[in-house]
Structure formats: structure tokens, C-alpha cells
Amino acid sequence: MRTRPQILAEIQAIAAATLGWRGEVSAATRLVEDLELDSLRALAFVVEIENRLRVRIQPEDETGLATVGDLAAVVELRQREHDAG
């Protein structure tokens, strides 16, 4: 099970590999505004997070997701469920 900093590091790696993002990624990085997630990039990004971190982000998780920190929190929650289940 990954810790929050490990999850953030993974998200940074996925942003680099999938989005070609060269900058720093922190918990405060905004998904739409900073990572410039249009619908196609958002899809690629979230699916790759699910694939690599072996989690399923649920529809209700996505409401109100604004930053990388929000996303990491959801991954942590779902990972815990996954491991428990």
C-alpha cells in the first residue's frame, strides 16, 4: 500500500509519461487549469492512474476533484478498499 507522498510521486510520473508534463506536480497543482486537461487528456490521465496504481476511481469520487491532492486522496481511499477487499 502506497503512502500519500508515494502516490503523489506516481501521479507526477504519470503526468510526465502520459501528458508530457515537464513541470513540478504538487498537491496544489490544479487538474484543469495547470495540467491543461482537456477531455482526451483527462481520460488518458485518469485511466493510466487506474492502470498503474491498480485502483478504480468511482464516479462519485470525481465530483469536486480540483487538484492533484484531491486525486491522491481518492487514490489512497480506493487503494485501501482494494487491499481490504
Binding site: V46, E62, T63
Partner: peptide, 8 residues
Amino acid sequence: PPVRLGRL
């Protein structure tokens, strides 16, 4: 199907 990460 619904879009991912917002703009719902």
C-alpha cells in the same frame, strides 16, 4: 458515457 474528471 459520462466524461472523466469533471465537466459533468
